[in-house]
Nucleic acid binder design. Structure first.
Length: 571
RNA sequence: CGGGGCGUAGCGCAGUUUGGCUAGCGCGCCUGCCUUGGGAGCAGGAGGUCGGAGGUUCAAAUCCUCUCGCCCCGACCA
């Protein structure tokens, strides 16, 4: 492609709409333009990259035995009603009323639709196992789209769904997808890690998230850098905190803490650090109030709490309920004298002489100790991991960092096949629900997260596999016939060689502009026809990533480029 | 959905507090000259319903009311 014949609108200045590096660079390098909040147009360069990613995904899916389908973006509401997810999606669902007055949704995901197809078309174990996938735009009315294509209202997702006759089959299908995901992200050149994620109410095996470590990621990763344990924040376990010496229980003491409600306020007022304090949170579960005790510097993990309490989800009690139960204003709850069920986090169970609310307004208690002052009904692990916590497997200090979720593999079981009655007859003629798995990849996120990890002050640094072009040919002076001739020859020669994608910067621009643009759009290999050529017929080859330069004779350019492509494709 | 901010040329911004002549600057764009190894220089030029509607006023980018859009923080995120 010749630069003058395509559309690559690069920008010198950063657009004000962008906050993070990948977003800025995608706009500056002319990959995307925003159309409205959460919706982006892919320009020619962006489209090339998008297609690179999609091709890799498609190849690896096919290799893993998955079958591609293409499903509508329009979905009737009744399928979502059937599965019970109409309420789950709620306002995230984008709907419209058609001319006949029927309400239709734009698919936020396709579990229901794919299950609907399978229940209609698959009736026998002989047709299973089967994994279907598609690459399609999904629509969600995100409350707050941000970070460019990292969180947008419409985004391209590869979603696959496996159907098996039993759990053993599901495990095989799952493994095939898991391995395919590794190959996909490897081929893209992404630095990624796999973390255990919560599998929700299904129980059973864990799911896995594929994450790109990044400070702009919206997910929190808990990792042990020693033994390799890794999980997301919802899922991560901690090693129990060892008990303190219980020999010296100080006498219980009530203190006046006027209008000091939060841990920070009480901590500052009493000069007691938050990890010597216990906060008491009143939850309602199955219609019954429960007190949850957490150390002052810890946060409740509602996913874990819900599991501990049973399947019924737990919600924080409202102000009136709290005041009725504790007899005090919000902010002064404590376990002493409280006559409801008390669940204590493990970290609380080993504390002694701690500070809590007194269940009297403007009062706290010092030197509280369980057993002596109150009784714990149940000790459980209901908090998030924080800095300083130890690995549940090897007791090393856990690393807390952020990441961007680019893929998720998930064992669904029979949740949707039950709800939507996707059944088949097994080899003994018994009707069974298909055992499902679902597997998603955020295609746009691969691009953004790659750029987050691979850029410098001059621009994007593409891997060979994602680069919109492998090579950019830069004739420094397009008005010099000899240079231009040589450039055109090299361009033709490389272009006609299968597998080499080449861009010719034929613009009549000053060299600085062309070099800056080439760096900004991140083409891995630059071929420069300039001073060295007019002087002694030498062509310069420069690598974007390392900045290394090589001088070669015109007739050797092709073989040299091919060897670079060979090397870079293995990197 | 709560809190904050912004909307002036394709992009980045000044001007708004304290209303006043033809609305400015940098980049980009067009023409010409010059230049050709890291976003050159000179000269000339095009491009604006100042987000929109209504109001106050002799006079509105500037003040008032309503409205639309966008960004940031938080909540939310199968």
């Amino acid at each position: 492609m010749k630069w003058s014949q395509t559309l690559i609108p690069t920008l010198k200045e950063s657009p004000s709409e962008a906050e993070i590096d990948s977003h800025k660079l995608m706009i500056r390098a002319g990959l995307i333009r925003r159309i409205t909040a959460g919706a982006y147009a892919y320009l020619p360069l962006g489209t090339l990259v998008l297609n690179k990613v999609i091709n890799i995904v498609r190849e690896e899916m096919n290799k893993a035995g998955a079958i591609e389908v293409f499903l509508p973006a329009l979905q009737p509401l009744n399928l979502l009603e059937e599965s019970g997810r109409l309420n789950v999606f709620g306002d995230d669902l984008i709907t419209f009323v058609d001319r006949h007055g029927k309400t239709t949704a734009l698919c936020p995901t396709h579990e229901e639709m794919i299950t609907d197809i399978v229940r209609n078309e698959v009736n026998s174990y002989r047709q299973l196992p089967m994994t279907l996938y598609q690459i399609q735009t999904k629509f969600r009315d995100e409350t707050r789209p941000r970070f460019g294509v990292l969180r947008s209202k419409e985004f391209i997702m590869k979603d696959a769904y496996s159907f098996d006759v039993d759990y053993e089959g599901l495990n095989k299908s799952y493994k095939l997808m898991y391995d395919a995901y590794c190959r996909i992200f490897d081929r893209c050149g992404l630095d990624y890690i796999v973390v255990e994620a919560d599998s929700g109410a299904m129980g059973g095996d864990v799911s896995h998230e594929f994450m790109v470590p990044s400070g702009v990621g919206e997910d929190i990763l808990i990792r042990c850098l020693k033994c390799g344990y890794s999980a997301n924040r919802e899922r991560a376990e901690v090693a129990p905190i060892p008990g303190e010496n219980r020999s010296s229980l100080n006498p219980l003491k009530e203190v006046h803490t006027p209008a000091k409600r939060t841990i920070q306020e009480v901590s500052a007022f009493l000069k007691v650090s938050p990890d010597r304090m216990v906060k008491t949170m009143i939850y309602i579960s199955n219609g019954q109030p429960v007190a949850v005790l957490l150390r002052g510097d810890h946060e409740v993990n509602e996913t874990k709490l819900t599991k501990v309490l049973g399947l019924e989800n737990a919600v924080l009690a409202d102000q009136n309920t709290i005041e009725h139960i504790t007899g005090a204003h919000v902010g002064f709850a404590g376990p002493v004298g409280l006559n409801i069920k008390i669940i204590a986090d493990q970290a609380v169970s080993v504390l002694q002489n701690f500070v809590t609310g007194a269940n009297k307004s403007d009062m706290h208690l010092l030197n509280v100790n369980h057993e002596r002052d109150f009784k714990i009904d149940r000790i459980a692990n209901v908090r998030y991991v924080t800095k300083g916590d130890k690995c549940p497997k090897c007791n090393n200090v856990l690393d807390v960092s952020q990441g961007i979720e680019i893929g998720h593999v998930f064992k669904l079981g029979t949740k949707y096949s039950d709800a939507l009655r996707a059944k088949f007859l097994d080899n003994s003629g018994v009707e069974k629900s298909a055992i499902m798995g679902c597997y998603g990849i955020g295609v746009n996120r691969i691009i953004a997260s790659f750029i987050e990890r691979s850029h410098d002050e001059n621009g994007i640094i593409w891997s060979l596999s994602l680069a919109p072009y492998h090579v950019i040919v830069i004739p420094v002076n397009v008005n010099d016939p000899d240079s231009m001739n040589a450039a055109n020859n090299i361009y033709d020669e490389l272009k006609n060689d299968a597998g080499i994608e080449v861009l010719l910067d034929d613009r009549d621009q000053r060299p600085g502009v062309k070099f800056k643009d080439a760096d900004l759009i991140g083409i891995p290999i630059k071929i420069i026809i300039g001073k060295k050529f007019t002087e002694n017929k030498e062509i310069e080859i420069k690598l974007r990533k390392t900045g290394e330069t090589f001088l070669v004779k015109p007739e050797d350019v092709k073989s040299k480029v091919k060897s670079f492509i060979d090397t870079l494709s293995k990197a």
